[in-house]
Design a protein around this nucleic acid. Structure first.
Lengths: 220, 220
DNA sequence: TATCATTTTAAGAAAACTTTAAGCAAACCT
DNA sequence: AGGTTTGCTTAAAGTTTTCTTAAAATGATA
Protein backbone atom coordinates (compact mmCIF):
# COMPACT_ATOMS: atom_id res chain seq x y z
CA UNK A 1 0.00 0.00 0.00
CA UNK A 2 1.36 3.36 -1.04
CA UNK A 3 -0.01 6.71 -0.02
CA UNK A 4 0.69 10.38 -0.67
CA UNK A 5 0.95 12.60 2.40
CA UNK A 6 0.84 16.37 2.02
CA UNK A 7 1.84 18.03 5.28
CA UNK A 8 3.94 21.07 6.04
CA UNK A 9 4.78 20.32 9.67
CA UNK A 10 7.97 18.40 9.22
CA UNK A 11 8.17 17.05 12.73
CA UNK A 12 4.69 15.60 12.61
CA UNK A 13 5.27 14.28 9.12
CA UNK A 14 8.39 12.44 10.24
CA UNK A 15 6.59 10.74 13.07
CA UNK A 16 3.61 9.77 10.96
CA UNK A 17 5.71 8.49 8.10
CA UNK A 18 7.67 6.20 10.33
CA UNK A 19 4.64 4.76 12.01
CA UNK A 20 2.99 4.15 8.66
CA UNK A 21 6.18 2.63 7.37
CA UNK A 22 6.24 0.20 10.25
CA UNK A 23 2.68 -0.68 9.40
CA UNK A 24 3.79 -1.64 5.94
CA UNK A 25 2.45 1.49 4.29
CA UNK A 26 4.91 3.28 2.07
CA UNK A 27 4.60 7.03 2.02
CA UNK A 28 5.52 9.74 -0.46
CA UNK A 29 5.68 12.95 1.47
CA UNK A 30 5.72 16.55 0.35
CA UNK A 31 5.34 19.80 2.28
CA UNK A 32 4.36 21.68 -0.84
CA UNK A 33 0.78 21.89 -1.99
CA UNK A 34 1.63 22.46 -5.63
CA UNK A 35 3.88 19.44 -5.74
CA UNK A 36 1.25 17.54 -3.81
CA UNK A 37 -1.26 18.21 -6.53
CA UNK A 38 1.16 17.18 -9.24
CA UNK A 39 1.76 13.89 -7.49
CA UNK A 40 -1.86 13.34 -6.52
CA UNK A 41 -3.05 13.13 -10.08
CA UNK A 42 -0.90 10.06 -10.68
CA UNK A 43 -2.79 6.82 -10.34
CA UNK A 44 -0.16 5.25 -8.15
CA UNK A 45 -1.57 5.91 -4.72
CA UNK A 46 -3.99 3.85 -2.72
CA UNK A 47 -4.92 6.92 -0.73
CA UNK A 48 -4.00 10.55 -0.16
CA UNK A 49 -3.70 12.25 3.22
CA UNK A 50 -4.09 16.01 2.97
CA UNK A 51 -3.43 18.59 5.59
CA UNK A 52 -5.96 21.39 5.28
CA UNK A 53 -3.62 24.18 6.28
CA UNK A 54 -0.81 24.47 3.81
CA UNK A 55 1.22 27.45 2.71
CA UNK A 56 0.08 28.52 -0.73
CA UNK A 57 -2.50 26.16 -2.18
CA UNK A 58 -4.67 24.65 0.57
CA UNK A 59 -5.65 21.06 1.13
CA UNK A 60 -9.18 21.94 0.14
CA UNK A 61 -8.00 23.36 -3.16
CA UNK A 62 -6.18 20.14 -3.89
CA UNK A 63 -9.20 18.09 -2.96
CA UNK A 64 -11.49 20.19 -5.13
CA UNK A 65 -9.17 20.12 -8.11
CA UNK A 66 -8.74 16.38 -7.91
CA UNK A 67 -12.44 15.69 -7.74
CA UNK A 68 -13.09 18.14 -10.57
CA UNK A 69 -10.64 16.19 -12.66
CA UNK A 70 -12.56 13.10 -11.78
CA UNK A 71 -9.72 11.52 -9.86
CA UNK A 72 -11.21 9.16 -7.35
CA UNK A 73 -8.28 8.24 -5.13
CA UNK A 74 -9.57 8.04 -1.54
CA UNK A 75 -8.66 11.12 0.46
CA UNK A 76 -8.38 11.76 4.19
CA UNK A 77 -8.27 15.37 5.34
CA UNK A 78 -6.30 16.47 8.39
CA UNK A 79 -7.31 19.65 10.15
CA UNK A 80 -6.04 21.47 13.20
CA UNK A 81 -9.43 23.12 13.53
CA UNK A 82 -11.79 20.56 14.81
CA UNK A 83 -14.70 22.72 13.83
CA UNK A 84 -17.67 21.05 12.36
CA UNK A 85 -17.57 23.59 9.58
CA UNK A 86 -14.36 22.21 8.15
CA UNK A 87 -15.59 18.71 8.41
CA UNK A 88 -18.68 19.46 6.43
CA UNK A 89 -16.74 21.43 3.90
CA UNK A 90 -14.31 18.58 3.43
CA UNK A 91 -16.86 15.89 3.06
CA UNK A 92 -18.86 18.04 0.70
CA UNK A 93 -15.94 18.48 -1.58
CA UNK A 94 -15.56 14.76 -1.78
CA UNK A 95 -13.17 13.77 0.95
CA UNK A 96 -13.63 10.22 2.13
CA UNK A 97 -12.69 10.79 5.74
CA UNK A 98 -11.65 13.46 8.14
CA UNK A 99 -9.29 13.47 11.11
CA UNK A 100 -8.82 16.27 13.62
CA UNK A 101 -5.39 17.22 14.86
CA UNK A 102 -3.96 16.12 17.13
CA UNK A 103 -4.66 12.52 16.31
CA UNK A 104 -3.17 9.18 17.22
CA UNK A 105 -1.15 7.80 14.38
CA UNK A 106 -2.73 4.43 15.06
CA UNK A 107 -6.07 6.05 14.32
CA UNK A 108 -4.79 7.22 10.97
CA UNK A 109 -3.50 3.75 10.14
CA UNK A 110 -6.87 2.26 11.03
CA UNK A 111 -8.76 4.71 8.85
CA UNK A 112 -6.41 4.22 5.93
CA UNK A 113 -6.87 0.49 6.20
CA UNK A 114 -10.61 0.93 6.35
CA UNK A 115 -10.62 3.18 3.31
CA UNK A 116 -8.62 0.84 1.23
CA UNK A 117 -10.62 -2.18 2.18
CA UNK A 118 -13.62 -0.48 0.68
CA UNK A 119 -15.35 -1.75 -2.44
CA UNK A 120 -12.92 -1.84 -5.31
CA UNK A 121 -13.18 1.59 -6.78
CA UNK A 122 -9.98 1.08 -8.60
CA UNK A 123 -10.87 -0.61 -11.81
CA UNK A 124 -7.44 0.03 -13.19
CA UNK A 125 -4.55 -2.06 -12.14
CA UNK A 126 -1.32 -0.17 -11.94
CA UNK A 127 2.20 -1.23 -11.18
CA UNK A 128 4.41 1.59 -9.97
CA UNK A 129 8.08 1.99 -9.27
CA UNK A 130 9.96 5.20 -8.65
CA UNK A 131 8.39 7.83 -10.85
CA UNK A 132 6.94 5.25 -13.20
CA UNK A 133 3.40 3.94 -13.27
CA UNK A 134 2.34 1.32 -15.70
CA UNK A 135 -1.30 0.78 -16.38
CA UNK A 136 -1.99 -2.85 -17.23
CA UNK A 137 -5.39 -2.13 -18.60
CA UNK A 138 -4.48 0.14 -21.44
CA UNK A 139 -0.77 -0.64 -21.53
CA UNK A 140 0.38 2.87 -20.81
CA UNK A 141 3.58 3.84 -19.06
CA UNK A 142 3.11 7.26 -17.49
CA UNK A 143 0.32 7.75 -20.02
CA UNK A 144 2.32 6.90 -23.09
CA UNK A 145 1.37 3.88 -25.08
CA UNK A 146 3.48 0.72 -25.22
CA UNK A 147 3.23 -1.99 -27.84
CA UNK A 148 2.53 -5.55 -26.75
CA UNK A 149 6.15 -6.63 -26.61
CA UNK A 150 7.33 -3.40 -25.05
CA UNK A 151 4.65 -3.76 -22.43
CA UNK A 152 5.45 -7.37 -21.65
CA UNK A 153 9.11 -6.57 -21.03
CA UNK A 154 8.37 -3.45 -19.03
CA UNK A 155 5.89 -5.33 -16.91
CA UNK A 156 8.43 -8.02 -16.19
CA UNK A 157 11.05 -5.47 -15.19
CA UNK A 158 8.59 -3.50 -13.08
CA UNK A 159 7.41 -6.55 -11.21
CA UNK A 160 10.93 -7.22 -10.06
CA UNK A 161 12.74 -3.92 -10.06
CA UNK A 162 16.39 -3.90 -9.07
CA UNK A 163 16.66 -7.55 -9.98
CA UNK A 164 18.62 -8.74 -12.95
CA UNK A 165 16.64 -10.52 -15.62
CA UNK A 166 18.53 -12.34 -18.33
CA UNK A 167 17.87 -11.97 -22.01
CA UNK A 168 17.07 -15.65 -22.15
CA UNK A 169 14.48 -15.28 -19.44
CA UNK A 170 12.84 -12.28 -21.03
CA UNK A 171 12.89 -13.94 -24.41
CA UNK A 172 11.25 -17.08 -23.10
CA UNK A 173 8.84 -15.07 -21.04
CA UNK A 174 7.71 -12.69 -23.74
CA UNK A 175 8.24 -14.58 -26.99
CA UNK A 176 8.04 -18.14 -25.73
CA UNK A 177 10.60 -20.85 -25.22
CA UNK A 178 10.73 -21.78 -28.88
CA UNK A 179 12.41 -18.45 -29.63
CA UNK A 180 15.74 -19.21 -27.99
CA UNK A 181 18.56 -17.91 -30.08
CA UNK A 182 16.77 -14.71 -30.98
CA UNK A 183 18.18 -12.58 -28.16
CA UNK A 184 18.34 -9.65 -30.52
CA UNK A 185 14.55 -9.30 -30.14
CA UNK A 186 15.14 -8.40 -26.53
CA UNK A 187 17.96 -6.01 -27.35
CA UNK A 188 15.82 -4.20 -29.86
CA UNK A 189 12.93 -3.81 -27.48
CA UNK A 190 15.11 -2.76 -24.55
CA UNK A 191 16.38 -0.06 -26.87
CA UNK A 192 12.81 1.02 -27.67
CA UNK A 193 11.94 1.11 -23.98
CA UNK A 194 14.98 3.18 -23.13
CA UNK A 195 13.99 5.66 -25.78
CA UNK A 196 10.57 5.97 -24.18
CA UNK A 197 11.97 6.31 -20.67
CA UNK A 198 14.13 9.12 -21.91
CA UNK A 199 11.16 10.78 -23.57
CA UNK A 200 9.33 10.55 -20.23
CA UNK A 201 12.26 12.14 -18.48
CA UNK A 202 12.08 9.37 -15.93
CA UNK A 203 14.71 8.94 -13.28
CA UNK A 204 14.45 5.20 -13.82
CA UNK A 205 16.93 3.50 -16.07
CA UNK A 206 17.28 0.05 -17.56
CA UNK A 207 20.80 -1.01 -16.74
CA UNK A 208 22.77 -3.62 -18.63
CA UNK A 209 24.83 -6.10 -16.69
CA UNK A 210 27.00 -7.63 -19.34
CA UNK A 211 26.51 -11.36 -19.76
CA UNK A 212 23.85 -11.37 -17.04
CA UNK A 213 20.96 -9.29 -18.25
CA UNK A 214 19.02 -6.15 -17.48
CA UNK A 215 17.61 -4.52 -14.41
CA UNK A 216 15.36 -1.58 -13.79
CA UNK A 217 16.59 0.87 -11.20
CA UNK A 218 15.53 4.24 -9.95
CA UNK A 219 18.85 5.79 -9.04
CA UNK A 220 21.89 6.58 -11.14
CA UNK B 1 25.47 -13.27 13.31
CA UNK B 2 27.09 -9.86 13.11
CA UNK B 3 25.78 -6.68 14.65
CA UNK B 4 26.73 -3.02 14.84
CA UNK B 5 26.72 -1.47 18.31
CA UNK B 6 26.82 2.30 18.67
CA UNK B 7 27.48 3.23 22.29
CA UNK B 8 29.61 5.93 23.87
CA UNK B 9 29.92 4.48 27.35
CA UNK B 10 33.03 2.45 26.91
CA UNK B 11 32.68 0.53 30.13
CA UNK B 12 29.20 -0.66 29.27
CA UNK B 13 30.17 -1.38 25.70
CA UNK B 14 33.04 -3.59 26.80
CA UNK B 15 30.79 -5.64 29.02
CA UNK B 16 28.08 -6.01 26.40
CA UNK B 17 30.54 -6.92 23.66
CA UNK B 18 32.05 -9.55 25.89
CA UNK B 19 28.72 -11.20 26.59
CA UNK B 20 27.55 -11.03 22.97
CA UNK B 21 30.82 -12.44 21.85
CA UNK B 22 30.40 -15.35 24.22
CA UNK B 23 26.96 -15.89 22.73
CA UNK B 24 28.45 -16.24 19.29
CA UNK B 25 27.46 -12.79 18.11
CA UNK B 26 30.25 -10.79 16.54
CA UNK B 27 30.11 -7.09 17.24
CA UNK B 28 31.44 -4.03 15.46
CA UNK B 29 31.52 -1.28 18.02
CA UNK B 30 31.89 2.44 17.66
CA UNK B 31 31.39 5.28 20.12
CA UNK B 32 30.92 7.81 17.39
CA UNK B 33 27.52 8.51 15.92
CA UNK B 34 28.83 9.71 12.57
CA UNK B 35 30.92 6.62 12.10
CA UNK B 36 28.00 4.56 13.30
CA UNK B 37 25.86 5.96 10.52
CA UNK B 38 28.52 5.31 7.93
CA UNK B 39 28.74 1.72 9.00
CA UNK B 40 25.03 1.21 9.46
CA UNK B 41 24.18 1.85 5.82
CA UNK B 42 26.16 -1.20 4.79
CA UNK B 43 24.12 -4.33 4.32
CA UNK B 44 26.48 -6.46 6.33
CA UNK B 45 24.76 -6.42 9.69
CA UNK B 46 22.03 -8.67 10.94
CA UNK B 47 21.00 -6.00 13.41
CA UNK B 48 22.02 -2.63 14.82
CA UNK B 49 21.97 -1.64 18.48
CA UNK B 50 21.77 2.13 18.96
CA UNK B 51 22.20 4.09 22.12
CA UNK B 52 19.87 7.07 22.10
CA UNK B 53 22.22 9.44 23.86
CA UNK B 54 25.34 9.99 21.86
CA UNK B 55 27.64 12.96 21.62
CA UNK B 56 26.97 14.80 18.38
CA UNK B 57 24.49 12.94 16.21
CA UNK B 58 21.92 11.09 18.32
CA UNK B 59 20.71 7.53 18.03
CA UNK B 60 17.36 8.86 16.86
CA UNK B 61 19.01 10.81 14.11
CA UNK B 62 20.77 7.70 12.93
CA UNK B 63 17.56 5.72 13.07
CA UNK B 64 15.66 8.35 11.16
CA UNK B 65 18.33 8.72 8.53
CA UNK B 66 18.52 4.99 7.98
CA UNK B 67 14.78 4.59 7.58
CA UNK B 68 14.67 7.55 5.24
CA UNK B 69 17.24 5.85 3.11
CA UNK B 70 15.02 2.81 3.11
CA UNK B 71 17.52 0.69 4.98
CA UNK B 72 15.62 -1.99 6.78
CA UNK B 73 18.22 -3.58 9.02
CA UNK B 74 16.51 -4.38 12.33
CA UNK B 75 17.32 -1.82 15.00
CA UNK B 76 17.16 -1.94 18.79
CA UNK B 77 17.29 1.35 20.65
CA UNK B 78 18.84 1.70 24.08
CA UNK B 79 17.61 4.53 26.25
CA UNK B 80 18.69 5.75 29.65
CA UNK B 81 15.95 8.33 29.84
CA UNK B 82 12.98 7.12 31.78
CA UNK B 83 11.23 10.41 31.16
CA UNK B 84 11.41 9.98 27.42
CA UNK B 85 10.02 6.50 27.65
CA UNK B 86 6.51 7.58 26.86
CA UNK B 87 7.64 9.60 23.93
CA UNK B 88 9.66 6.76 22.58
CA UNK B 89 6.88 4.26 22.92
CA UNK B 90 4.25 6.64 21.61
CA UNK B 91 6.16 8.21 18.78
CA UNK B 92 7.88 5.30 17.30
CA UNK B 93 10.33 6.31 14.65
CA UNK B 94 10.70 2.94 13.10
CA UNK B 95 12.83 1.04 15.54
CA UNK B 96 12.10 -2.63 15.88
CA UNK B 97 12.62 -2.83 19.61
CA UNK B 98 13.50 -0.76 22.67
CA UNK B 99 15.46 -1.55 25.74
CA UNK B 100 15.70 0.71 28.79
CA UNK B 101 18.99 1.15 30.55
CA UNK B 102 20.06 -0.51 32.70
CA UNK B 103 19.30 -3.83 31.10
CA UNK B 104 20.47 -7.38 31.47
CA UNK B 105 22.77 -8.35 28.67
CA UNK B 106 20.97 -11.67 28.46
CA UNK B 107 17.85 -9.68 27.67
CA UNK B 108 19.63 -7.98 24.80
CA UNK B 109 20.85 -11.28 23.45
CA UNK B 110 17.35 -12.69 23.60
CA UNK B 111 15.87 -9.73 21.76
CA UNK B 112 18.57 -9.82 19.10
CA UNK B 113 17.90 -13.50 18.52
CA UNK B 114 14.19 -12.81 18.30
CA UNK B 115 14.73 -10.00 15.80
CA UNK B 116 16.89 -12.03 13.55
CA UNK B 117 14.56 -14.98 13.47
CA UNK B 118 12.04 -12.69 11.83
CA UNK B 119 10.86 -12.93 8.22
CA UNK B 120 13.59 -12.89 5.59
CA UNK B 121 14.84 -9.39 5.15
CA UNK B 122 17.34 -10.06 2.45
CA UNK B 123 16.34 -11.84 -0.69
CA UNK B 124 19.62 -11.02 -2.30
CA UNK B 125 22.64 -13.18 -1.96
CA UNK B 126 25.51 -11.23 -0.55
CA UNK B 127 28.93 -12.27 0.63
CA UNK B 128 30.41 -9.84 3.08
CA UNK B 129 33.77 -9.45 4.70
CA UNK B 130 35.05 -6.49 6.66
CA UNK B 131 33.52 -3.42 5.08
CA UNK B 132 32.93 -5.19 1.79
CA UNK B 133 29.70 -6.64 0.49
CA UNK B 134 29.55 -8.43 -2.78
CA UNK B 135 26.22 -9.03 -4.47
CA UNK B 136 26.33 -12.24 -6.47
CA UNK B 137 23.19 -11.42 -8.34
CA UNK B 138 24.34 -8.33 -10.15
CA UNK B 139 28.07 -8.63 -9.58
CA UNK B 140 28.43 -5.46 -7.57
CA UNK B 141 31.02 -4.89 -4.87
CA UNK B 142 29.76 -2.19 -2.51
CA UNK B 143 27.50 -1.14 -5.36
CA UNK B 144 30.18 -0.77 -7.96
CA UNK B 145 30.10 -3.03 -10.93
CA UNK B 146 32.68 -5.79 -11.50
CA UNK B 147 33.39 -7.49 -14.80
CA UNK B 148 33.07 -11.25 -15.08
CA UNK B 149 36.73 -12.00 -14.40
CA UNK B 150 37.04 -9.40 -11.67
CA UNK B 151 33.95 -10.84 -10.04
CA UNK B 152 35.16 -14.42 -10.24
CA UNK B 153 38.43 -13.56 -8.53
CA UNK B 154 36.82 -11.36 -5.92
CA UNK B 155 34.29 -14.03 -5.14
CA UNK B 156 37.02 -16.58 -4.68
CA UNK B 157 38.95 -14.30 -2.35
CA UNK B 158 35.84 -13.36 -0.39
CA UNK B 159 34.78 -16.93 0.11
CA UNK B 160 38.06 -17.69 1.80
CA UNK B 161 39.32 -14.46 3.23
CA UNK B 162 42.61 -14.49 5.06
CA UNK B 163 43.65 -17.59 3.15
CA UNK B 164 46.33 -17.49 0.52
CA UNK B 165 45.23 -18.45 -2.96
CA UNK B 166 47.91 -19.12 -5.53
CA UNK B 167 48.00 -17.58 -8.96
CA UNK B 168 47.85 -21.05 -10.41
CA UNK B 169 44.74 -21.85 -8.43
CA UNK B 170 43.00 -18.63 -9.38
CA UNK B 171 44.01 -19.04 -12.99
CA UNK B 172 42.65 -22.56 -13.16
CA UNK B 173 39.57 -21.56 -11.24
CA UNK B 174 38.67 -18.52 -13.27
CA UNK B 175 40.18 -19.13 -16.70
CA UNK B 176 40.24 -22.91 -16.70
CA UNK B 177 43.05 -25.42 -16.43
CA UNK B 178 44.09 -25.04 -20.04
CA UNK B 179 45.34 -21.55 -19.31
CA UNK B 180 48.32 -22.54 -17.17
CA UNK B 181 51.29 -20.40 -17.98
CA UNK B 182 49.25 -17.24 -18.28
CA UNK B 183 49.69 -16.08 -14.69
CA UNK B 184 49.86 -12.50 -15.90
CA UNK B 185 46.07 -12.63 -16.40
CA UNK B 186 45.73 -12.95 -12.66
CA UNK B 187 48.23 -10.18 -11.98
CA UNK B 188 46.39 -7.85 -14.27
CA UNK B 189 43.03 -8.50 -12.66
CA UNK B 190 44.36 -8.32 -9.12
CA UNK B 191 45.64 -4.91 -10.12
CA UNK B 192 42.20 -3.92 -11.40
CA UNK B 193 40.58 -5.12 -8.19
CA UNK B 194 43.01 -3.21 -6.04
CA UNK B 195 42.20 -0.10 -7.98
CA UNK B 196 38.51 -0.59 -7.26
CA UNK B 197 39.11 -1.32 -3.57
CA UNK B 198 41.00 1.93 -3.34
CA UNK B 199 38.20 3.76 -5.11
CA UNK B 200 35.80 2.31 -2.55
CA UNK B 201 38.05 3.47 0.26
CA UNK B 202 37.82 0.02 1.72
CA UNK B 203 39.92 -1.03 4.64
CA UNK B 204 40.31 -4.40 2.99
CA UNK B 205 43.41 -5.09 0.98
CA UNK B 206 44.58 -7.83 -1.34
CA UNK B 207 47.97 -8.80 -0.02
CA UNK B 208 50.66 -10.45 -2.07
CA UNK B 209 52.56 -13.31 -0.52
CA UNK B 210 55.51 -13.63 -2.79
CA UNK B 211 55.74 -16.91 -4.64
CA UNK B 212 52.65 -18.19 -2.83
CA UNK B 213 49.74 -16.06 -3.96
CA UNK B 214 47.22 -13.54 -2.72
CA UNK B 215 44.96 -13.15 0.24
CA UNK B 216 42.21 -10.76 1.17
CA UNK B 217 42.48 -9.19 4.59
CA UNK B 218 40.64 -6.49 6.45
CA UNK B 219 43.33 -4.93 8.61
CA UNK B 220 46.57 -3.30 7.64
C1' DT C 1 -7.49 -3.07 -50.57
C1' DA C 2 -4.87 0.67 -48.55
C1' DT C 3 -3.07 2.21 -44.30
C1' DC C 4 -0.93 1.99 -40.13
C1' DA C 5 1.29 -0.06 -36.15
C1' DT C 6 4.06 -3.63 -34.87
C1' DT C 7 7.40 -7.24 -35.25
C1' DT C 8 11.30 -9.44 -37.36
C1' DT C 9 15.68 -9.32 -39.63
C1' DA C 10 20.12 -7.85 -40.46
C1' DA C 11 24.21 -5.32 -40.38
C1' DG C 12 27.36 -1.88 -38.90
C1' DA C 13 28.65 0.98 -34.76
C1' DA C 14 29.65 1.32 -30.14
C1' DA C 15 30.79 -0.24 -25.73
C1' DA C 16 32.60 -3.43 -22.48
C1' DC C 17 35.78 -6.66 -21.54
C1' DT C 18 39.99 -9.55 -22.20
C1' DT C 19 44.48 -10.47 -23.75
C1' DT C 20 49.03 -9.15 -24.79
C1' DA C 21 53.28 -7.17 -24.07
C1' DA C 22 56.66 -4.26 -22.34
C1' DG C 23 58.83 -1.52 -18.97
C1' DC C 24 59.15 -0.58 -14.13
C1' DA C 25 59.30 -1.84 -9.13
C1' DA C 26 60.00 -4.70 -5.29
C1' DA C 27 61.73 -8.62 -3.01
C1' DC C 28 65.06 -12.14 -2.75
C1' DC C 29 69.61 -14.25 -2.87
C1' DT C 30 74.51 -14.75 -2.68
C1' DA D 1 75.65 -4.24 -3.53
C1' DG D 2 74.45 -6.34 -7.90
C1' DG D 3 72.01 -9.58 -10.25
C1' DT D 4 67.93 -12.29 -10.61
C1' DT D 5 63.39 -13.42 -10.04
C1' DT D 6 58.77 -12.22 -9.23
C1' DG D 7 55.16 -9.14 -9.35
C1' DC D 8 52.85 -4.60 -10.82
C1' DT D 9 50.92 -1.46 -13.98
C1' DT D 10 49.48 0.30 -18.39
C1' DA D 11 48.13 1.03 -22.81
C1' DA D 12 46.98 -0.76 -27.02
C1' DA D 13 45.19 -4.46 -29.72
C1' DG D 14 41.87 -7.91 -30.06
C1' DT D 15 37.45 -10.04 -28.97
C1' DT D 16 32.83 -10.39 -27.61
C1' DT D 17 28.61 -8.54 -26.45
C1' DT D 18 25.30 -5.19 -26.83
C1' DC D 19 23.10 -1.18 -29.16
C1' DT D 20 20.90 1.13 -32.74
C1' DT D 21 18.78 1.65 -37.06
C1' DA D 22 16.37 1.04 -40.94
C1' DA D 23 14.20 -1.73 -44.08
C1' DA D 24 11.32 -5.75 -44.88
C1' DA D 25 7.65 -8.67 -43.34
C1' DT D 26 3.51 -9.30 -40.91
C1' DG D 27 -0.89 -8.34 -39.34
C1' DA D 28 -4.74 -5.74 -38.00
C1' DT D 29 -8.24 -2.17 -39.29
C1' DA D 30 -11.21 0.51 -41.68
Amino acid sequence: MRILYVEDEKFLADAVIHVLDKSGISVDWTADGEEGLDLAVKPIYDAIVLDVMLPGISGFDILKTLRERNIKTPIIMLSALSQAEDKIKGLNFGADDYLAKPFKTSELVARLRALIRRPPLQDEKVISFGDLYYNLKDRTLNDIHLSEKEAAIMESLLKNPDHVQSKEYLLAHVWGTESIGEENYVEVYISYLRKKLKKLNSKCKIKTIRSLGYKLCSKS
